[in-house]
């Protein structure tokens, strides 16, 4: 079980410039930044949580609620856009009923638009957890979602 205190202990000097690395490490371990985490970090670094929250919301890496079981990351790089990724994105949003950065009510899926994933030769590209899907078409979207729903049903 990961815990915040042992992360904090690693940062022996409590300088402001350790804030982002600490938050990154917490997010790596927990998947998101909880209120408790912010309070603990603030206490340790002597920074008001309001400031930490302000900083963390600035950067797209940090999230404040857990990811869905199947975290969908869809590339929104220029090349994928040129290759009409917006059609895929629209379909995904419609099928899942969520927007960028949100999680479905049942906690199964979460959606994240990311910057270029370097798959410019094979766009549109998306990833569900670690699995990559390339050269996406409109027809593939329901198939992919169905695939994961099927796993859940079994």
């Amino acid at each position: 079980m990961p815990d915040i205190d042992s992360i904090l202990e690693k940062y022996s000097y409590t300088q402001h410039d350790n804030l982002i690395p600490i938050l990154q490490e917490i997010q790596d371990d927990f998947g998101y930044l909880s209120k408790e985490a912010l309070v603990k970090v603030g206490d340790y670094l002597k920074i008001p949580t309001g400031k930490i929250y302000g900083l963390a919301t600035f950067y797209s890496q940090f999230r404040f609620e857990p990811k869905g079981k199947y975290h969908i990351r869809i590339c929104n790089g220029t090349s994928c856009h040129i290759n009409s990724n917006f059609i895929i994105l629209k379909e995904l949003k419609k099928k899942l009923g969520i927007n960028d950065g949100e999680v479905t009510k049942n906690g199964l899926f979460s959606l994240e638009e990311t910057e270029c994933m370097s798959g410019c030769g094979f766009g549109p590209v998306m990833m569900v957890n670690e699995k990559v899907y390339t050269r996406l078409t409109l027809e593939k979207v329901p198939e992919i979602i169905h695939f994961y729903l099927q796993i859940e049903n079994e």
């Binding site: 008001p48 309001g50 929250y53 919301t57």
Partner: peptide
Amino acid sequence: EEVQEVSTFDFIKRGNKTSIATSMN
């Protein structure tokens, strides 16, 4: 922040979503 050191408000998010809010909004 600078006079009262209470830091109730800060800028949150960025770009077109920038706003001023309290901790955890």
